[in-house]
């Protein structure tokens, strides 16, 4: 094994250890923070329905909510470790079933938005680099400012108002295309900004000047020398974009009345259904951690400069 491979493997091992530590942190966080909530699911059911005091006590005993926190944590850990997500006390269904019912919607929403957004987010700054015209540069800047400042939920409401209520073009509830486009534009802006600034930075480096001095065409310099380098840095954003797409998906599901992970989480939070919220936080957190880990490893493999860290 040569020194380069060893350094690469050491770097990957360090990433792995950090990811595991963060994953453990999320598991602990999701349990304890949600236990600080005043009131439990039985209280809420008691307020809503007509559970008698003895029924409430019996329900607490059945759910194990009367035991000390640390015992509950231990039992919960064993359960999670065996892959059982538990049962939702509010919906009286296994959490795995609840998640299975809503995840396709959120995945469709989030992944389509991520895909379209990434394409746009790479295409726009690349075009602006190839033909640095006012219009193209302004377009990059416009998507950037749009994604930072315009809250996706307010654009969603505007779209419902104009397209559904006034023009009747889309149904007010259950439309998927419009929220995907709104989220995609948001993702594109975040990516385009960083990619464009990176490409501008790289354009000033010595090796690009050398390429220009060699007489290479602008297209070749941008596509073969600048873009691949900027992309390796942009790969790091995938985890961040994934998290952003989910955050956007929560509000989009509420605005467009879609039965997804976001609507489920909100219902669970309002109903104090800890187990569901925990499952959502843990699995989403894991998804982001895995996305970050994979991108970090890919970057180390394709970019030797990052291996020393």
């Amino acid at each position: 094994m040569n020194a380069h491979t060893r350094r690469l493997l050491l770097g990957i091992a360090a990433d792995l250890v950090r990811s595991l530590a963060v994953a453990a942190g999320i598991v602990v966080f999701s349990f304890f923070v949600l236990r600080m909530i005043p009131g439990d699911v039985v209280d809420i059911r008691g307020i809503e329905g007509s559970l008698t005091y003895s029924q409430q006590t019996a329900m607490r005993a059945e759910l194990g909510l009367d035991k000390p926190w640390i015992t509950q944590f231990g039992e919960w850990l064993t359960m999670i470790a065996s892959g059982d997500l538990g049962t939702s006390a509010r919906f009286a269904k296994p959490i795995a079933d609840l998640l299975a019912a809503v995840i396709p919607t959120t995945l469709t929403l989030g992944l389509s938005a991520l895909l379209i957004g990434t394409l746009l987010g790479v295409l726009l700054p690349t075009l602006a680099m190839l033909w640095p015209r006012r219009l193209l540069v302004a377009l990059v800047e416009a998507t950037t400012i749009w994604s930072i400042t315009v809250p996706t939920f307010s654009i969603g409401i505007l779209c419902v108002l104009v397209l559904a209520v006034w023009l009747g073009l889309i149904p007010a509830i259950g439309n998927l295309v419009v929220p995907i486009l709104i989220l995609a534009l948001d993702t594109a802006g975040t990516l385009a900004k960083i990619l464009y600034e990176d490409m501008k930075d790289i354009e000033r480096t010595e090796y690009v000047r050398a390429a220009r001095a060699k007489g290479l065409s602008r297209a070749r310099i941008v596509l073969r020398h600048i873009l691949p380098n900027a992309l390796t840095a942009a790969v790091a954003l995938i985890g961040l974009l994934l998290a952003g797409a989910f955050t956007g998906a929560i509000t989009m599901e509420v605005v467009f009345g879609l039965p997804g992970l976001g609507t489920l989480t909100l219902q669970a939070i309002k109903g104090r259904d800890y187990a569901v919220v925990q499952a959502v936080i843990i699995w989403l957190g894991f998804a982001v951690i895995i996305a970050n880990l994979v991108t970090d490893v890919i970057r180390k493999i394709i970019d030797p400069r990052l291996r020393s860290a």
Binding site: G25, I26, F29, V33, L34, I37, P38, F246, I250, V277
Partner: peptide, 24 residues
């Protein structure tokens, strides 16, 4: 910075949601 990673691994709004429901 491990803790910072932890906060960043949770989708931003989810962390705020958890905090908001955890306290009054």
């Amino acid at each position: 910075f491990g803790f910072v990673d932890l906060i960043r691994a949770l989708p931003g709004i989810l962390f705020a949601l958890a905090c908001v429901v955890a306290f009054e």
